[in-house]
Design a protein around this nucleic acid. Sequence first.
DNA 1: ACCTGAACACCGTTCAAGT
DNA 2: ACCTGAACACCGTTCAAGT
Lengths: 213, 213
Amino acid sequence: MPAQNPVASRLSREVIVDAYLRLVEAEDNDSVSLRRLGGELGVDPTAVYRHFRDKDEILTAAADRLLAEVTDGVELSGGWRDQLRDLLLALRRVYLVHPRALLALQLSPPRLENGFGNVERCIALLREAGVAEDEVPIAYEALETYTIGATVFDARATQESLAGWRQLYRMLPADRFPNLTATAASLYLDIDKAFRYGLDLMLDAIETRVRGA
Amino acid sequence: MPAQNPVASRLSREVIVDAYLRLVEAEDNDSVSLRRLGGELGVDPTAVYRHFRDKDEILTAAADRLLAEVTDGVELSGGWRDQLRDLLLALRRVYLVHPRALLALQLSPPRLENGFGNVERCIALLREAGVAEDEVPIAYEALETYTIGATVFDARATQESLAGWRQLYRMLPADRFPNLTATAASLYLDIDKAFRYGLDLMLDAIETRVRGA
DNA sequence: ACCTGAACACCGTTCAAGT
DNA sequence: ACCTGAACACCGTTCAAGT
């Protein structure tokens, strides 16, 4: 029985993705560099190029893993409306924590993996709701783009930046901005609530449409 | 009459912002570096630091100028619904062309400038519509976040990336993804139309609520 | 008062060399 | 087959020096 080479196969796609997710979670820093990733792995910064074509491919692999958790972590019950709502809120939760990795998905669709369960589910629920067949794609797109777009935008915000806007609006000349100055103090107090408000608007309107049909 | 120093005051905040917007418009490149900006201005790359604290402040100044154009470029007519719709579509148009500069606004609200007209207008229209006073802020937030978030997300997409997702979804195993494979060919054919669909859902629901009140 | 230019501390990525 | 390490071509930003 020959001695195992202790250096052989220390790295793998899985180990690299693990380390990457550990780093983004540990630091609220904006970005994880390959040099930091190499440090975390105890390996030369360029070693990961033996397993991934470029940095984007690492983000993509990480995102696929995260997306698979969306449907795993949520058990759906109730009518199509509640299920659709819970699914999109679960999607938001994942995007809130890892906006950067998940945004990488947009530009390079991953090959053949496991993160598509939530999309299948969403479309199935829209059909179940009775949305007209030719409206299903566009309705899905609207819900998806709202959820992802608004969430990635919200993920960038900080309490300071939100308070900064409130204060700026409050200080504006009241004669030229009567509505804005009056509303300023109530803005951006709960961005999650605002997201849910908008989602419910969309679901309300869909419900009304399928009832009328 | 003393000779003017030909070098004096070649640079100004305005000239720098002009050059910056010229560059982002000319190139579909991802980012404009300060070295390229210096080249465009015929000046050392670090000269702009005499007029702006950092790169973000340049983006912010550019964004403020763009926002002012939102209300300038659009003449509003009709009821609150049409006006609100036109205003948000005009906001989308500006964000589609300059997503990066406008995103800089989110984190550092500009001092005392002229880009807030559209916000004042939106809130005024929601009041005019008859939205309950305590719902106005959250309704505004939902509409704003949808418009900006979805648009910044859409601005990143390319015809190739959209086609890539269509094809990926189409190739998935039909037994595990019956709805997704069936819908795949109809997805992402017109993302502007999808945005308008979602916006109309929201406006429909608001209309229904204020009628019921 | 404003611009220059060297320098600093970073990036992602390539590629010949090691083992 | 996989990792190393020097190198390349970039970044944003600082700061002493020029005029």
